[in-house]
């Protein structure tokens, strides 16, 4: 494991912790898209189908369990927790799941490395993760007052993706036969979706102003 990969995983972990902190401690999910969280739960459920059959490392299994457990518990909190649910911006979070899930499923059935159930599900999870942030970005744009934790959460998610690209570049030059077009293109698309957000995030940071995305 190289430093970029580890930093990427830790940034991903930090993003989840920031979100759990907001939800568990502050008991608020204001500005957080339930749609995006449900899509992430689906991403991990379909990607980690081999969690108990294909052992890679202790680190790998633990991280998978954390991402599975946290994504489903976040969805549970927003939907079922009495106090947290009250802060959910239901009327603003209007993105339709199917507009995202169906195209990803069709694409995974058409473009994959092997036509087996597990492989198609794994590819589907890559395509889905690439666009799962869209409902969250739309909600951010509609939110007039983006609080610090929500801004940090999205920033950490974007940073995690950028670090994974550096990890792929590093692995490409240091390992033999390390070419994964599907993973790379999906990952690149996913990172590009954050470009706009990054721009305004750094602007607000530089000017010491509140983060606000233009409508």
């Amino acid at each position: 494991m190289n430093i970029f990969r580890l930093a990427g995983d830790m940034t991903h972990l930090a993003s989840v912790l920031v979100l759990l902190l907001k939800i568990h401690t502050i008991k608020s999910c204001a500005g957080i898209s339930l749609k995006t969280q449900e899509l992430y739960a689906l991403v991990f459920a379909t990607r980690y189908l081999d969690i108990f059959t294909n052992y890679i490392s202790f680190y790998n299994t633990i991280m998978k369990l954390i991402f599975l457990g946290s994504s489903f518990s976040i969805v549970w909190y927003i939907k079922r927790h009495k106090i947290v649910h009250r802060s959910y911006d239901k009327d603003q979070d209007t993105f339709r799941h199917w507009f995202i899930v169906l195209p990803c499923l069709v694409l995974a059935l058409l473009i994959n490395e092997r036509f087996t159930f597990k492989e198609v599900m794994w590819t589907f999870s890559l395509y889905l993760e690439a666009v799962a942030i869209l409902p969250q970005l739309v909600l951010l744009q509609r939110t007039r007052n983006i609080d610090n934790l929500t801004g940090q959460y999205v920033f950490l998610l974007g940073a995690y993706r950028a670090l994974y690209i550096l990890n792929w570049i590093y692995r490409y030059f240091t390992e033999d036969h390390y070419i994964h077009w599907i993973t790379w293109i999906a990952g690149l698309v996913q990172t590009l979706l954050y470009a706009d957000f990054f721009y305004y995030y750094f602007q607000s940071w530089k000017n010491n102003a509140k983060l606000e995305l233009p409508a």
């Binding site: 294909n54 890679i56 991280m63 998978k64 092997r114 492989e119 794994w122 990890n167 994964h180």
Partner: peptide, 10 residues
Amino acid sequence: SSDKDVKDEL
């Protein structure tokens, strides 16, 4: 599918 090195990523 499990023989691919990319599968060690999360």
